[in-house]
Design a protein around this nucleic acid. Structure first.
Lengths: 86, 86
DNA sequence: TTTCATTTGTACGTATGTATT
DNA sequence: TAATACATACGTACAAATGAA
């Protein structure tokens, strides 16, 4: 997919921000920013880091959960899903 | 699941509105309010009919799309998915 | 035990974009 | 030229559960 983990959100791009963020986060996981079973930054932190609304951040996370890249534990955080099973 | 297709949204119930609506719409489809390949009411109409925010209505629809009960055609409407395949 | 901050879950209202009719 | 309908995004608010102080 060739996504730069250092990329910023481009509100003028054809790809909507929530998909851009999903790609960026996936690239950062791929690169090793966060290990399996470790939490990624909270939604609030991602909101500040990427300058997006929380709803947009949540949507990006939903995409990755759908893809099996992340899993969410209510009231605890969002974690990187281990490769083959748990 | 025994859901009354005539039910209204109860904001005090444990089940969140978006899930209540998903159940109600599923019950109405089951009952035959809308036939396969026919459009259900637009999001705006459902917003008015059930007194919910559009985001909530969309979420309920997303649940049914996920379950294979409905399918969305952008700019055209939301349709009842035929039973076995298309 | 109580309090407080953190984090995700849910919902509201509004605005703009895009494609179809 | 509108009107319609879905797509996306913003900001705000409150609830519930967790964990630390």
């Amino acid at each position: 997919m060739e996504i730069d983990p250092e990329a910023r959100i481009d509100h003028g791009a054809p790809l909507p921000p929530y998909r851009q963020l999903a790609g960026i986060l996936a690239a950062r996981i791929e690169r090793g920013d966060w290990q399996p079973n470790r939490a990624i930054p909270s939604e609030s932190q991602l909101v500040q880091e990427y300058g997006l609304a929380r709803a947009t951040v949540r949507r990006a996370i939903a995409v990755l959960v759908e893809q099996g890249v992340l899993f969410v534990v209510p009231q605890r955080g969002t974690f990187v899903k281990p490769a083959g099973e748990v």
